[in-house]
């Protein structure tokens, strides 16, 4: 356990924060309804306003949003606690996940065209609005089997789970993964992605969500209010922690490093 490879996948941490719709919209005359924060805080700072529809840059597409996802990152951003790290400025429009229909595209956009059903992850561009812009790297064709509302629940949470489990921790078939908060937004994707990868999945949730863990395909469902992590942790190759729950493992001396509780951590156990 001294060789724990530690990786923090801080929710939506990137340096490429761009200016939100509310401040970079062009004067094209058309307006939309958006959820806007003019100051940092909680739910009380969110206002519904008419703001100009953003104009896509040459590498962006303008999407008419049908549905938008809600993520733990939203209250973090609106709180202003990470304004410096994220490069956020006011006013801002929250919302990282969208599903909708492409309205128009910038000149250099090759893979998206008007009328396409898409879902995506517009970083810091404000998804809680009737229109949002995305780059090609931030969008993909909406899965046909999903409604727009279902598709809007996917990108950030599923990418977080995928990039942590697969890109970072390199989970392989036959390995065992412990997913904390397996019934939550990112956790529920992590359980399914790990199963699809051929891994054995041990997942934790509160008592009412034990059934959901099993529906998602967890081999072992643990109630974190009573689970004995020491007993399962010995068999675990990868730990995924979207909820900061590894502190409870840490406190039992199983591993020695500490993590920030807001981080989405994935690490090799052995």
């Amino acid at each position: 356990m001294q060789n724990v490879l530690r990786i923090l996948a801080f929710l939506c941490l990137t340096t490429a924060a761009t200016r939100p719709n509310a401040t970079r919209a062009q004067a094209n005359g058309r307006v939309m309804t958006a959820v806007v924060a003019h100051q940092y805080g909680g739910a009380e700072v969110l206002k519904h306003e008419k703001v100009p529809i953003p104009e896509p840059k040459e590498n962006e597409a303008l999407v008419r949003v049908i549905a938008a996802g809600v993520n733990p990152a939203d209250p973090l951003i609106v709180s202003g606690k990470y304004a410096k790290e994220f490069g956020t400025r006011l006013p801002l429009i929250p919302g990282y996940d969208i599903a909708g229909v492409v309205e128009k595209t910038g000149a250099r956009v090759a893979t998206l065209k008007a009328g396409d059903a898409v879902y995506g992850y517009p970083l810091m561009r404000g998804g809680w609005a009737e229109y949002a812009v995305v780059t090609e790297a931030e969008a993909a064709a909406k899965p046909r089997s999903l409604t727009y509302a279902e598709a809007a629940a996917v990108p950030l949470a599923a990418l977080t789970a995928w990039q942590s489990l697969i890109s970072t921790a390199r989970l392989e078939a036959g390995q065992t993964v412990l997913v904390h908060g397996g019934s939550g937004g990112a956790g529920s994707f992590a359980v399914q992605i790990a199963r699809a990868r051929g891994a054995k999945v041990i997942a934790t949730a509160s008592t009412p969500n034990q059934d959901l863990l099993r529906q998602l395909g967890a081999d072992v469902a643990l109630d974190y209010t009573s689970a004995k992590f020491e007993e399962v942790a010995r068999e675990v190759d990868v730990v995924l922690d979207p909820v900061g729950a590894s502190s409870s493992v840490l406190s039992r001396g199983l591993i020695q490093r500490s993590w920030r509780s807001t981080a989405f951590a994935a690490f090799r156990w052995r």
């Binding site: 049908i66 996802g69 609005a129 279902e150 629940a153 019934s183 939550g184 529920s188």
Partner: peptide, 13 residues
Amino acid sequence: TRGKIVLRMADEP
């Protein structure tokens, strides 16, 4: 939260 919350702006096309 259990699973995901979604905000709806418009009806499903």
